[in-house]
Simulated scan of single mutants.
Amino acid sequence: MTELPPKPNRDELTERASRVRVLVFDVDGVLTDGGLYYGDGGEVMKRFDVKDGHGLVMARHAGLRTAILTARSSSIVETRGRELGVSLILQGRKDKTAGFRELLTQLSVAPEECAYMGDDVNDLGPLGLAGLSACPADAAPEVRQEVHYIARNRGGHGAARELVELCLRATGQWEATVQHMKAPEALQAVKL
């Protein structure tokens, strides 16, 4: 196995994270554990982690927008994205580079103001464009070589929340967001 190139130092990583206005996530292998469950009628289940979901909710409460960019299409993803208040859900985008550019246009944001988390080689295009690129711990080796940040957690097991926390800490919003989430009125509206 080839040795990974050096990752940005903590200061550079914090600088990149502090510029993020939109967090973009792949689905299978990032927001889910990558398992696809099929019944007679087609795909019937995906496993999402509530910690990741709560991370996306926290991002929204801190003023960061979230987006989903996935090559597959599923009503399950649409439902989960709406539950979490995701700003934009782009499904069926086999060419993820084109999908990422479409997302940038629709959200009127520059690439350097985006974080993108992906897990496989079809994510390399957006990862190369994003100001902050990230992947779960169990991402493909080619992806781990290219990203700025490798989460400690696997896809669908807290990796997305790690990226949210990194960005909120970089902007000094983490503690205020945690305090906000303690308020009973904040929790009433939260679907994890």
Rank of each mutant, 00 (worst) to 15 (best):
Y38H: 14
N9Q: 09
R19L: 03
E83W: 02
V143D: 05
L187I: 08
R47T: 14
V178H: 03
E142I: 11
A140D: 15
L127R: 04
Y38D: 12
L107R: 06
T66L: 12
P126W: 01
R101H: 03
E3A: 08
V109T: 14
E175N: 04
V77D: 08
G81N: 12
E12S: 04
F48Q: 07
S75R: 15
V178M: 07
Q91Y: 14
L103N: 04
T105F: 04
V121N: 05
V77G: 15
A130M: 14
G53Q: 05
A62V: 05
P111Y: 00
V24K: 02
K191H: 07
F48M: 07
F48S: 11
S87F: 02
G128F: 06
E165Y: 10
G34P: 15
T177I: 14
I76D: 04
G85A: 12
L4A: 14
C135T: 10
L107A: 06
E43Q: 11
T32K: 11
L64C: 08
V57P: 09
V178A: 12
R65F: 00
E43W: 00
D40W: 13
G55A: 11
V24H: 11
A183P: 12
A134S: 07
E15K: 06
P8F: 02
T66E: 01
D28P: 15
N122Q: 04
C167M: 03
G156T: 08
G34T: 14
R93F: 11
R80T: 08
A140F: 13
G81I: 13
Q91F: 13
C167R: 03
H148F: 06
A186Y: 04
V24M: 03
E78Q: 13
S74W: 02
A67Y: 13
I76A: 03
D52P: 08
G53S: 01
R10G: 05
Q145G: 09
C114K: 00
Y149D: 00
T171S: 05
A71D: 07
R80W: 10
G42D: 08
G81R: 12
R144E: 11
W174H: 09
R80N: 00
L90F: 05
L90W: 10
G99Q: 06
L4M: 13
T32A: 09
A59T: 07
D40Q: 15
H54N: 05
R47P: 15
E162H: 05
G63Q: 06
F48G: 13
A134M: 01
C135S: 04
V22W: 06
C135H: 05
R16P: 03
L31I: 10
Q106K: 13
D138G: 07
I68C: 09
P136M: 06
F100W: 07
R21W: 01
L168G: 07
A134N: 05
L56S: 01
A176C: 11
G99I: 02
M181A: 13
R154V: 12
D138A: 09
I68M: 10
Q145V: 08
